[in-house]
Design a protein around this nucleic acid. Sequence first.
DNA 1: TTGAAAGCGCTAACAG
DNA 2: CTGTTAGCGCTTTCAA
Lengths: 320, 320
Amino acid sequence: MINMKDLAKACGVSVATVSRVINADPAVKPETREKVLAAAKRLGFTPNLAARSLKLAKSRTVGIIIPSISNQFYYEILGYIEAELNKRGYHLLVSFIQHGVTTERDALEAMSSARLEALILSPRTCDNGEYLRMLSSQLNTKIVQIFTAPFEEYGSLVVDDFYGTYEATRYLIEHGHRRIMYIGGDNRAGGYKSALEAAGLSYDPSLVSLDWLLEEDIVAEMITSKGPTAIIAVARQAEVTWRALRKLKLSVPDDISFIAFDDVKWVGMFDITAIAHPLTEIASVLAKQLFYAIDNPDAPPEKTVIKPYLIERSSVSKIK
Amino acid sequence: MINMKDLAKACGVSVATVSRVINADPAVKPETREKVLAAAKRLGFTPNLAARSLKLAKSRTVGIIIPSISNQFYYEILGYIEAELNKRGYHLLVSFIQHGVTTERDALEAMSSARLEALILSPRTCDNGEYLRMLSSQLNTKIVQIFTAPFEEYGSLVVDDFYGTYEATRYLIEHGHRRIMYIGGDNRAGGYKSALEAAGLSYDPSLVSLDWLLEEDIVAEMITSKGPTAIIAVARQAEVTWRALRKLKLSVPDDISFIAFDDVKWVGMFDITAIAHPLTEIASVLAKQLFYAIDNPDAPPEKTVIKPYLIERSSVSKIK
DNA sequence: TTGAAAGCGCTAACAG
DNA sequence: CTGTTAGCGCTTTCAA
């Protein structure tokens, strides 16, 4: 591969000059610039990232660790982020957590040799705090937590789950529902309770399941025994619940109303009212936050909370 | 950040020895190895990828360019591939093509400075042939085409679409269907025709649409006017067709049978019989092919064709 | 406006 | 078994 030395020779200038041209240093005589640029194009010169990284101690690379769950969003965000990075000449290094195959720690270790300028991840726990601290302090990698943010000391971008569940519940109440079942995580249950309270309804714990590994049959059983008029179900549980509804041959929204938290493809295909994450907003805020952190190494970490919103479709009926 | 020199000093050995230990060179006295390894762990040493890449003229990095369409598969494959790369200490650099934002060319240019050892992509056309040739010859990047393979000269891994459509058609015929509609791309239409012929049925062009940008209403119109007993629809068209069926209030499989080409999430949720790509197989073959090409730079490019398979669900009825 | 030269962290001869 | 050393391609200071 052709390098700066070759290019310099071909142009009859020094490597220093070539470097200046490639890096758009204005202190180069226009004619020289033209000459070098032309030769670079003709010879197909591409600067060697490794050499540059080594010299500058900066990789122009951002890493992202994708957890096995919540795939959907990550994927959609990925493309957007990469486009933003691209604009600034940055690269995107991706690492996955695969249940039973790779852990977050593996991903972190894999990433660390790349001397990332920033790292996007969704830490489930504080387990790798020490490692992250090392990345952050030793390698100067800016950490941005997304969706989940167990660490106080790093930047974060999370969705207001409380608000989302609150909205879903409020919407159902507004439509006349009183016996509303909630099947989801603990973190979002608060919004459910809160909306009930706000409407002067009592909270019935038997209408709530916080079990993450819930099975179809159990949900079906819960539905038959408790007889809710509406259900809010989150993420994977939404899928399980939907299957349960089909198994029970309950028609939505005639027999029962349904709201899914997380507007994924199948939810739309079934015309299910959903709480959605504004993905492009998330991605754009993420990109902004990322570069801000990179450009201002000493600024305190930014923390953003983004509100989800309800997409009204046809899975909720009005009860008089 | 701590480097080999620091580590060497801390252990009272030379950088060469440290390098040997880090690279698992067996020619190091066990005690020395232990000492270095312990210090490396204690001090949190991570080899600098940039320096190594520069020195070895190898990046231990594989790139993948993700086209805006056919997202689903890419995403599922991504995680798998990355796991394989990880096992060998390789990294995965990802670039996206975004309609109206980034072109394949942009992605290629972004990637080229990373000195990839291999590049996975789905070239739609031969447009960037020259650039790929440069990557391949100058940077020694091994090119692997996936799903589409317009270039003869590089390795490829494609799915036998002909076979998939053939199987779907055969399956429907076996179930007694005679008026089968096909809505999909030109490339897969052959299998449809072929299966009809094999069954002694005549090919009716009015039952076929090869329009990639088909609209729901047009499909609905086609269905009403032609009255097929079964439909095979591909990828995005499957979605459009499904919506059309719902709009027509046709019940599947009672009123009409349906097979989707590409087993994506929603297809499963609707319990639709589908032609599926064996994603884990694709990913594992891809990984194998990738490393084979990297490890054997002079071997001729491998070309693999993978057969899709039919997942029997409940969207096809038997006609007597 | 340009060039010479040092050095980023690592690997791999080569020498011992 | 271990150390010395050159050099990968680039940026940047200093000097001209």
